[in-house]
């Protein structure tokens, strides 16, 4: 009995609410990313994009989601049924889990408590994201293998090796950033950047490498080799239909949201409001207003990165697979190592 008494119930409830809100927001953002993708694609190609469902096609994602739910659920006869269903589940789970360590804003003050807008401030923040992302490979691989289809398998293997390759370069750039921060906790990293000392100004090369790797990790064009429809039909989710396919597609958009959040947090000051002294503003106008503005600011940064993701998708054509691997192994990784070494030397002799 004392198990239940010893727990901090307020903390538990607070975290449960926070987690559900974050998951809800991730899903809504992912939904509207699909809409934004179609809309941006349209305007870039001088078209209008979805404009029938609601004003400006604002209800289009709901219609799309409903359509996916109504579709027939097909499980191929010779597939491995359990793994076939597990695959999209893992993809969605890992996409959702990443958001746990992102600090969304400073503390808010409510019910006599300081509530941090972050699910868990673990002291390995960035590594946690890394770990979860590396688990995301299994969603692709298990799905591709369980489909019992050669195209799916090839695409899954392509996708997985691409993700592993680019994880290396990503990790190496992060090491250079971590040398500056001296901490892995994302909240500490943001707090260090609060007076506009954004790490992008100290690590411009690192940021570019990280950006490129983020594209590869999210399977976005120009690196969407695992769903290259011109050569592999539909890639690893070829045999999927209905909401299982929806899960894979959705997981991609959630990943995009989270990697935008991570880029904004690590390199662009996270929830810091540009051209404003946050601490002073908080004292003058209250903590809650500050937290609200910070949240808005972070979301604006995220929205820009999401737009950037989409913008690149409709500009740059897909890479060939050997070009992709050459870029990863022969350009980005050496560059990242060089960046790391230079950063190390500067810190040592500065």
């Amino acid at each position: 009995m004392h198990v239940f008494l010893s727990l901090d119930w307020f903390l538990l409830i607070e975290k449960a609410i926070l987690i559900s809100i974050i998951i809800g927001i991730s899903l809504i953002v992912a939904m509207y990313e699909t809409w934004a993708e179609r809309k941006v694609a349209a305007v870039i190609q001088d078209r209008r994009g979805p404009n029938r469902a609601g004003p400006g096609g604002i209800f289009q994602p709901l219609a799309d989601g409903l359509k996916l739910f109504m579709k027939e659920e097909i499980v191929p006869n010779l597939s491995n049924k359990f793994l076939f269903i597990l695959g999209p589940g893992i993809a969605m789970l890992t996409a959702m889990m990443t958001s746990a360590v992102v600090p969304w804003a400073g503390n808010i003050h409510a019910f006599g408590r300081d509530i941090p807008l972050q699910v868990a401030d673990v002291n390995i923040g960035i590594l946690y994201i890394f770990g979860v992302v590396s688990m995301g490979v299994y969603g692709v691989m298990i799905g591709g293998w369980a489909s019992n289809n050669k195209f799916s398998l090839l695409a899954a293997i392509r996708g997985a090796s691409q993700i592993i390759s680019y994880e290396l370069a990503m990790g190496l750039t992060l090491i250079a950033v971590l040398m500056l921060t001296g901490s892995l906790s994302l909240r500490t990293i943001v707090e260090q950047q609060l007076d506009h000392k954004y790490y992008v100004f100290y690590q411009p090369v690192g940021f570019i490498i990280f950006l490129v790797c983020a594209f590869a990790e999210c399977n976005r064009t120009p690196f969407d080799l695992s769903e290259a429809e011109s050569e592999l039909n539909m890639g690893y989710h070829q045999e999927y239909s209905s909401m299982k396919l929806g899960f894979y597609l959705f997981a991609e958009y959630v990943n995009m949201f989270i990697s935008s959040a991570v880029m904004a947090t690590v390199f662009w000051g996270g929830y810091d409001i540009p051209f404003l002294n946050d601490a002073k503003f908080g004292q003058e106008h209250g903590q809650n207003l500050l937290a609200g503005l910070e949240l808005l600011c972070l979301f604006l940064k995220i929205a820009f990165f999401i737009f950037f993701f989409i913008w690149v998708r409709w500009t740059i054509p897909r890479f060939r697979y050997d070009q992709l691997m050459n870029l990863g192994w022969k350009a980005l990784i050496p560059l990242a190592i060089l960046n790391m070494l230079v950063t190390g030397f500067v810190i040592l002799f500065h």
Binding site: V122, N123, G131, S134, M135, M141, A156, I157, S161, I164
Partner: peptide, 26 residues
């Protein structure tokens, strides 16, 4: 030991087992 936990995941589950899976699936 959070660091050990996550490194165990990244290195073993995230990288080595993926390579194992590659080979076995192919």
């Amino acid at each position: 030991a959070q660091f050990l936990a996550i490194v165990n995941l990244i290195v073993y589950a995230g990288a080595i087992m993926v390579l194992f899976l590659f080979v076995i699936m192919l």
